[in-house]
Amino acid sequence: MTDLTAIPPLGGTQPLVEKIGDIGIVEVIDRALASIAVRAGQDAALSELMASKFEIGLPEAGQCLETKPSRIWWMGPGQWMMDGDHDSREDLAAELKAALGDVASVTEQTDGWCRFDVSGSDLSEMFARLCGLDFAALKSGAATRTLLHHQGCFVILSELGASVLGPRSSAGSLHHALVAAAKSVA
């Protein structure tokens, strides 16, 4: 193991946890990420390998599948993002590449993103101040990339709330936008 110390996107020593009214905003750092892009003509082969090796399917456009211990969501035509526990699968990309071979292009994305998990009894008012998604109409399992505080961010809905993934370098700006929106509606 490396003796270098990792720091969270917001730059603290611990991931930041905020509570605004009944809205929780948590900086999530324990997920490794890798993108999977299908190689030409390998769609069926990729589906099979994902099912056999990871017991997970390839979600349709706008969708996220969650099969513990991973989430996988659609990024674009022929492209998905998969996550995994960071401590035990830090080099998730290498693991996937070894499993998928020439069937897919795999790229490490772990630190390309910051992630904030937002929870609360009704998040639709908060997200109405953040992005143009029809949040109230989205169901658990929806995953889409949209414009949020001038940046392309993934918004993924689960039973627990919403995960927002944005570019890591501007984590501070994204976090500020989330907190401001939460305070506006809290």
């Binding site: 190689r39 022929g78 492209q79 490490e108 390309g112 890591r168």
Partner: peptide
């Protein structure tokens, strides 16, 4: 027709 896939990794690497 080319078998090529792209993704940005600007932020992923220091």
């Amino acid at each position: 027709e080319l078998d090529v896939q792209l993704i940005s990794t600007t932020e992923a690497w220091a």
